[in-house]
């Protein structure tokens, strides 16, 4: 199992066969505060690294979820539509957002490992 992290505070877990699960980090979840709504993309949508794929609404504001990798979306966590608080409770597990089939697996190399991410958020 390997989890990598983006500068936009997403985690990307490789599941083999160029399939990844994407969610937001605990740090991001804490920064956002209480979530009230998550707008998810649709299965089959293409995502392009650096572009918006989802919108996360907290009590305070709307924030974009930026695709950390490119590919096509194979599954979305539709539980989040009714229970966005799952993200707050378990951002690294049950609170995942989408699963993506990578179109360019080398993009994973540009992401940070846990140690690098931890020092990134300390700055």
């Amino acid at each position: 199992m390997s989890i990598k992290y983006s500068e936009d505070h997403e985690w990307v877990e490789s599941k083999g066969d160029d399939l990844v699960v994407i969610g937001i980090t605990d740090f991001a979840q804490e920064q956002l505060g209480d979530l009230v709504y998550v707008e998810l993309p649709e299965v089959g949508d293409e995502c392009v690294r650096g572009e918006n794929i989802s919108v996360i609404e907290s009590v305070k504001a709307a924030s974009d979820l930026i695709a950390p990798v490119s590919g096509s979306i194979t599954e979305v966590n539709s539980r989040l539509e009714d229970e966005p608080e799952i993200v707050t409770e378990d951002s690294m597990g049950e609170g995942w957002f989408i699963k993506v089939k990578l179109s360019n697996p080398e993009e994973l190399d540009d992401l940070m490992d846990e140690e690098a991410y931890n020092s990134f958020i300390e700055d």
Partner: peptide, 9 residues
Amino acid sequence: MPEGKMPVR
């Protein structure tokens, strides 16, 4: 009152 759960800001 917006319909659904998406905040209208």
